[in-house]
């Protein structure tokens, strides 16, 4: 009778299970749910209620975090649709993609070694733009329900995200 903590994240927020998401609706549903389950709403109640509130709020936060970012949402959607995105097993990427990645990495490494903050910020912007075009591909693939192609694109996005983190870390290291 009690609510199923394993309920899928889309259902939890009352959203249709698809990649294209109404971000405003997601945020409003997130706020409405936290308004009910957050530990602050139950702080004056006995331990058992507070523990349950914490579990719930944890679950709602995790769900929001997963659906808010496109990559996490794509991987999650693939998982609930039963498609193995092959993050660990399938490391075969196209030669062209790998070559492109190598070039990016070299550029970041060079800028980092030379302490060029401006260049790093420029790379950060360029990569963001590139990420947007890959995201458009991903959207089209999900819209066409081509899940295998979407899984490939999601893997490429993982590389891009990792690279973006490396740039951020390089910037932080130079700033401190």
């Amino acid at each position: 009778m009690s609510i199923d903590l394993q309920q899928d994240y889309f259902a939890l927020f009352g959203l249709p299970r698809r990649f294209d998401i109404d971000e405003g609706a997601l945020e409003a549903a997130f706020h409405a749910l936290q308004g009910e389950v957050h530990p602050d709403r139950h702080a004056h109640l006995p331990d058992a209620d507070r523990r349950r509130a914490m579990q719930w709020a944890t679950r709602v936060n995790e769900a929001f975090r997963t659906l808010r970012k496109p990559l996490a949402r794509a991987l999650y959607l693939l998982e609930v649709r039963g498609v193995d995105s092959g993050l660990e097993t399938n490391t075969a990427m196209s030669a062209a993609f790998l070559m492109e990645q190598m070039e990016w990495r070299e550029a970041v490494e060079e800028a980092r070694a030379g302490g060029e903050v401006g260049e790093l910020e420029h790379l950060h912007q360029r990569l963001r733009q590139h990420g947007r075009s890959v995201l458009a591909e991903l959207q089209a693939q999900f819209a066409a329900d081509d899940l295998q192609a979407a899984a490939d694109t999601a893997r490429r996005m993982m590389f891009i995200e990792k690279l973006q983190n490396d740039i951020d870390e390089a910037l932080e290291a130079l700033e401190s």
Binding site: M1, I3, G14, G24, A28, A32, R52
Partner: peptide
């Protein structure tokens, strides 16, 4: 009982915010 109540309040929260009604 507490679990059922939480269930109800969560459903109520969502019912108050049907997807197409949520202000953007």
């Amino acid at each position: 009982f507490a679990a059922r109540r939480m269930d109800r309040s969560v459903r109520a929260a969502l019912a108050g915010h049907k997807v197409d009604e949520i202000p953007l």
